[in-house]
Simulated scan of single mutants.
Amino acid sequence: MPNTTQNAPTNVEEIATSMQDTVLGIWADFVNHSPFLVMGALILLFTWGISALAARLMDASLRHSKMRGSLRELFVRLLSIGIWITGILLAAMVTFPGLTPARALSAMGIVSIAVGFAFKDIFENFFAGILLLWRFPFEKGDFIECEGISGQVEHISVRQTLIRQTSGELVIAPNSFLFLNPTKVLTNLPRRRITIITGIAYGENVTEAVRVIEHAVDECRTVHKDRPLEIFPQAFGASSIDIEVTWWADPTPVDVRRSRGEVVTAIKGALDEAGIEIPFPYRTLTFKHPLETVSLEKSEGEIS
């Protein structure tokens, strides 16, 4: 019968020796490879500095041109991305000496596919941001409206857009949301058309009312004179003749509200001064059977 008591310490010593040799081998390999790791880290640090410097220089040079701000920012970011890709490839080849450019590109392609599936939404927003910056449907400072979100664009990045609503809240909208949904650019033009409906009583002269309204709106400071003023009788309303009043003003939301307030005040004052009635809602009641009337004097006599 074998002596297990004597073999046990021998097995433990062999396992411990094997583990020690493995750890020492790993440490020796790490020490031998450490110059390559340090060189790779230095290359990444150098890449970071070159990317920041190149982006700053390119942005400064493009600022003197007539290039749009969004397109200038796109070129700067693409330059930074290109520098970082080159630096990472170079650092990988230095860190792993057996890695060739062809193998590195192949590995990067496989990794990019895996990462693309894992971070689909991030890459979707990234490419949507590039398309938004390239096509420039709106710029920083524009007022936009998309799916119930309305406000001023504060910043456009490659992943998201910051929108400051007129009530003060900040909305962080993914670029894919703005790219895939219809978006109104309220300040795309320097002028914006505004329409209101006013009404006059049926007994008033419509032609005279239109003339009075036209003169009143034309005197308003916020109404632009380089665009036509349009005033048309529109419909027979329930209690009035409805008149459509259309003019052009500055495009921002506060400018629209200011202009609408000035025009409404001017129309009300002009119609009052001309003696043209702006009617309250009238109701005509028709009964199926004639109503019996009782005189007030007879009623009082019966009561006494």
Rank of each mutant, 00 (worst) to 15 (best):
P2L: 06
Q6G: 02
P9N: 11
V12R: 14
V12E: 09
E14C: 09
I15D: 10
T17H: 11
Q20G: 10
L24Q: 14
G25M: 04
N32P: 00
N32F: 01
H33D: 12
P35L: 08
I43W: 01
L44N: 12
L45H: 03
F46G: 07
T47E: 05
T47L: 03
W48F: 12
W48C: 11
W48T: 12
S51H: 05
S51A: 15
L53R: 12
L57D: 04
M58R: 06
A60F: 00
S61T: 14
S65F: 01
K66W: 07
M67T: 08
S70P: 00
R72A: 07
L74S: 03
R77M: 14
R77Y: 07
R77C: 10
I81S: 12
I83M: 06
W84K: 09
G87F: 02
G87Q: 05
I88E: 04
V94M: 11
V94K: 10
F96I: 10
L99M: 12
T100N: 08
S106N: 10
V115D: 04
G116S: 13
A118I: 08
K120N: 13
E124W: 07
L132H: 01
R135Y: 07
R135G: 00
F136K: 15
F138L: 01
E139G: 11
I144M: 06
Q152H: 03
H155E: 15
H155Y: 09
V158L: 15
T161Q: 06
L162T: 11
R164G: 10
S167R: 13
E169D: 12
L170P: 01
L170V: 10
L180K: 15
N181R: 15
P182I: 01
N188P: 01
R191A: 09
I200Y: 04
V210R: 06
R211Y: 09
V212I: 11
H215W: 08
A216M: 02
E219S: 15
C220A: 06
R221I: 03
V223Q: 07
H224C: 04
L229W: 00
F232H: 07
Q234E: 13
Q234H: 12
F236A: 15
G237H: 00
A238D: 14
W248Q: 05
W248S: 12
T252G: 11
T252L: 03
R257D: 11
R258G: 14
S259E: 06
E262D: 05
E262A: 03
V263P: 00
V264I: 13
T265P: 00
L271M: 03
I276D: 09
I278H: 06
F280W: 02
P281D: 02
R283D: 10
T284A: 10
L285H: 05
T286Q: 09
T286C: 03
F287G: 00
H289L: 12
L291C: 01
E292C: 03
S295F: 05
L296D: 07
L296V: 11
E297I: 08
E297R: 12
K298W: 08
E300D: 13
E302G: 10
E302N: 13
